[in-house]
Structure formats: C-alpha cells, structure tokens
C-alpha cells in the first residue's frame, strides 16, 4: 500500500474522530451551562478552548470565551485548523483523493456530512443542531466503515487513526477538567459535580458510570476514562485497539514490537492495564495525563516516520 494512501486513511480516522470529540464537548458544555448562572460562563468555556490546544490563537481573536465565541471558533472557524468544519473538510479532501480505494458508501457518507454542515451554517442553525449533526455523522461514519470496508492494511490505518485520536482526546478532556475542578479556583460543590457529569456525558460514559457508582466521585470518573477496558472511549481501550492495528500492519506478535510506535503503544497499554487509580493519583493525575498525551503524540510521530513519511536513504 502506498504511504500516501495509508496516510489519508489514518488522517480520515483522526479528523473524523477529532470533529466528533470536539462536537461532544461543545454540546455537553452548552447544555450544562444552560442551567448555570451567567457569571460562571467565562470560567466554564475557557477549559474547552484549552482542551483543543487553541488557547493562544483563540485569545488573539476573542476577548472572552462564551457560548458564541467558542462555537464560532471551535465549530466553523477557518482560522482554527482544528475546528469541526476544518476537520470535516480535511477528512473529505483525504477521502476524495483515495476515492478509488474506499467504498462508495464511505465516500458518499463523508461527502454528505460535509454538505450537511455547510447547509446548517447557511441556515444559521445554532450550536445544538450543529453538534447533533456532527455526532450523528461520527456514529454513521463508524457504522459505514465497519459495514463496507475490507479488513486490509488500509482498514488498520483508519482504525489506528481513530483510536489514537480518541485516546488522546479522552486524556485531554480528563486532564483539563481535573485541572480546573480540583486544582483550579474553588467553585460550589453542586457545580462541581455537575461539571463531572458533563465530562462523563461528553465521552458518552455517563450511563455506564451510573450503572456502577451511585454518586459522582472524581477518582471513579478518572478510573473509568483512563483504565476501564470495556468502555470504547477510555484511553486503555483505545490503546488496545491501536496496538492490535499496529500488530496487524507490521505482522509482529503480541509481546514483541517491530518499531518504536509499537513499543510505546505497548508500554502505555501495559501501564494502563496494571497501574491502579490510587497509584496514579498519588503520583499526580495531571502529570500522568500529560505524559499520556505526550506519548500519544510521540506514537503519532513514530507511525508517521515508520510508515507514512519515512526518510529515504
């Protein structure tokens, strides 16, 4: 398989996942804050911008983070390379170049989502409808991939892209909220628990959490989002998916590794498998999450160097 085609598949996965996650956090935050007094706005919208790593650029453009500016910037802005619209445009561009390599259904689905969000913008639809369309688009994307793509190397690059992006996004979401809620300025208990609910909802884990725990406890939330092997948005779950896809691509067997990306994925997955949440907290959750995100970025760079943009010598 040509590296360029693998690269396109990898990034279709990443951009679609990035769009979906961004829509989730926007949407959940918006709905949560509908019930909050207005003076908490500034406090509560800022972390979202932080999650996407866009703080510097954002505050060059806007004075404050509120529902409108956050939606403008994270939803449609062409200046923000990680805005939802930009992610979908880039996913579509990638799909277009490799149309002969993916199913017609997948192309039509991504193309359809692109046209849908353009239409919503033209009609001036608000944040809620917009995020809903993107989330549904994300679900449909996974369904169409699952139902129409051959399980070849290309499939594994797509999977690897989705899993890596999702793992990093979940870690980012947890990190920023934890930082704000536990280490940031004091806010009311009620508001705090409200915020943790929002975190769970933004990764579609609220119901799953409630089935196991009667009340919201930051440690338990972190345990689920980081270490739970059953939930499809937990960091551990996704590193497991990533590891399997990397094995499938290189042909190496579990317990070994063929390249640096595999080694780091395996090591991170082992750590998430055997570390306890108490150990993690005593060592400092923030540091742990920081390192996890950095690992994800390094893995991404190594996948790129190994398969996609390797130096020719």
């Amino acid at each position: 398989m040509l590296s360029r085609i693998a690269d396109s598949l990898f990034w279709i996965g990443r951009y679609m996942e990035r769009a979906d996650n961004t829509a989730r956090i926007l949407d959940v935050n918006y709905h949560m804050l509908l019930e909050q007094p207005p003076d908490t706005y500034k406090l509560r919208w800022d972390p979202l911008i932080a999650i996407t790593g866009e703080r510097t650029r954002f505050y060059q453009r806007f004075e404050e983070a509120n529902a409108q500016t956050a939606f403008d910037y994270l939803g449609y802005s062409a200046d923000n390379p990680n805005s939802i619209a930009q992610c979908i445009i880039l996913a579509r561009e990638n799909a277009r170049t490799i149309r002969d390599r993916i199913s017609r259904e997948l192309w039509e689905d991504i193309n359809g989502l692109y046209h849908k969000i353009n239409k919503l913008r033209d009609e001036g639809e608000g944040l809620s409808r917009f995020c809903d369309a993107v989330k549904r688009g994300g679900h449909r994307f996974h369904g169409v991939c699952d139902a129409t793509l051959a399980r070849d190397e290309g499939w594994h690059f797509l999977q690897a892209g989705c899993a890596l992006e999702r793992a990093e996004m979940t870690a980012r979401i947890l990190d920023v909220h934890y930082h704000q809620l536990v280490e940031g300025p004091q806010i009311l208990n009620e508001a705090r628990s409200h915020a943790w609910v929002a975190v769970l909802k933004s990764v579609a884990a609220y119901e799953f959490y409630k089935r196991q725990h009667s009340h919201i406890e930051p440690t338990q939330v972190a345990q689920l989002l980081l270490l739970d092997p059953r939930h499809p948005r937990s960091v551990r779950f996704n590193l497991g998916v990533l590891q399997n896809s990397l094995y499938a691509i290189s042909g190496s067997v579990p317990g070994s590794y063929a390249n640096e990306g595999e080694r780091l994925t395996g090591r991170a997955h082992e750590s998430l498998t055997y570390d306890s949440i108490d150990e993690i907290f005593s060592g400092g959750l923030h540091d742990y999450l920081e390192e996890m995100q950095a690992t994800c970025r390094t893995i991404g760079a190594h996948i790129s160097q190994t398969y996609l943009y390797y130096a020719v010598s």
Binding site: M1, L2, S3, A6, E153, Y310, V312
Partner: peptide, 28 residues
Amino acid sequence: AQEMGIELVEGRDLVVVDDVVYMKTIHG
C-alpha cells in the same frame, strides 16, 4: 488505474534513488 489494476500515484509518492524510481509504500 483501476481497470488496469495498477497503482495510481502522485509525484510525491515516487522517489529517485541512484537513478532508479521507487514508490513509497508503508513497507518501504
């Protein structure tokens, strides 16, 4: 390309090393 069963490549997929043309695949 599809009908002939050959790879559709762009310039950036190809590299010339010692006067031999190669395409960059995930396995080298």
